[in-house]
Write a protein that binds this DNA or RNA. Structure first.
Lengths: 218, 218
DNA sequence: GGTTGAGCTGAGCGGGCGCTTAGGACCTCT
DNA sequence: AGAGGTCCTAAGCGCCCGCTCAGCTCAACC
């Protein structure tokens, strides 16, 4: 690997969606796998299909990944880490609980809508991971749950929110956001930003926050 | 078929979950398929597995169903018809819009939680149906959506609800209920009735209905 | 009591699956 | 020029898939 390539890799990691995956061939395979898994599901996708989409022979896949399942694991882990980062950023942000909850829902939904192919794989193909890989993913989900619960609890403590069942409401909020990946369609009438704004408003109503002026929407 | 068997069939159709599926062997195969599809997904389930769970040889499946996909289609259609029936019953019921919306959410969620194996197949394996079978299912879903939208629109008209975006809120309400099938676990801490009551309350908040006394919960 | 037909099984076909292996093209460094 | 290493392909192995088919059993009818 040359100096130039190393620089290119580092830039890619910072700017591109799957930039952390190198070398280039491994990333192309992974992007192809995301598309195929999202369209047809993990089990219905063949390694020949993935390799074909990446413009390679079936055998090339096994130079970069040990098995087909390792591809799913890498997709799932990167995706869950991104989801957790989005929620933690909102939970650690400025403003009162309502601001933070609205920002969490807005950005989380925006990601699920804007990257709905990735999100579909991340959220719905978890059961396809074997028992030896699943625990690390479940742990990431637990921390995502904790981030949202933290915001809601702080809102209840400050008196901003009226929430009789905090764990149940946390579950419902996350569930609502996650399901966006199932129904969102690029050809549909709503942009990811619009869905994010709508959902942020709905969630604030769910927690009994005082109505607030609509934020400027792009 | 004897007179007694015909009576037994009719009673079964009225009382049992999959009673409308006859003869008995076809129902056992279908129930086995529901379990297998819910656990592992349609594509990961083999016809040998289905037949094995039903205590039959692999070839027996093809006496009652033309293909593996026909099994999925029958499960999906019966499930969607049941879901639509639940929502229509609530939409056509007594009471004001808030009563009807709460009842719709409560019973719809109760069904998704209580029959979460069936619901998982019905709601998440739709893409596994080929293009020739999917339209009839999509039409049933359209009518479910219309039932919920109808209730919300009537609440807006009567001034009970405050809903800026009726189609978007309809989508969110259905999405919230449907996703119960993904996360609900029989070993979890909540009963289907409890989840139904919690979700009915959350949805009434989403549509800006006046707070109302909690209904008696079993 | 012989015939029929429905329901089922054992054996297996054709094919596509995940994955492996041997070897070749191309680059870098000596 | 040659060696060594990386990345890829062509071919194919062993397996299991969805599905078929000849033949068995047995209750229901003439």
């Amino acid at each position: 690997m040359t100096q130039d390539e190393r620089v290119a890799d580092r830039q890619a990691a910072e700017e591109m969606p799957w930039g952390e995956v190198t070398p280039d061939a491994a990333r192309r395979l992974l992007v192809a796998a995301v598309e195929a898994f999202a369209e047809r599901g993990y089990h219905a996708t063949t390694t020949r299909d993935i390799a074909g989409r990446a413009g390679m022979s079936p055998a090339a896949l096994y130079i970069h990944y040990k098995t087909k399942e390792e591809l799913l694991l890498r997709i799932s882990r990167i995706g869950h880490e991104k989801a957790l980062e989005i929620l933690r950023h909102a939970a650690d942000g400025e403003g009162d609980a309502a601001d933070r909850l609205a920002e969490a829902v807005r950005s989380f939904v925006r990601w699920h809508a804007g990257h709905h192919t990735t999100a579909r794989v991340v959220q719905y193909e978890l059961d396809s991971l074997g028992a030896e890989h699943r625990p690390q993913i479940v742990e990431l989900r637990r921390r995502s749950d904790a981030a949202v619960r933290e915001i809601i609890e702080s809102g209840v403590r400050s008196g901003e929110f009226d929430v009789p069942d905090v764990p149940g409401t946390t579950l419902a909020v996350l569930s609502l956001c996650i399901d966006v990946a199932r129904w969102f369609n690029t050809e549909g009438r709503r942009t990811p930003d619009e869905v994010g704004a709508l959902y942020a408003d709905l969630v604030l109503r769910m927690v009994g926050a005082e109505p607030r002026p609509a934020v400027a929407q792009k």
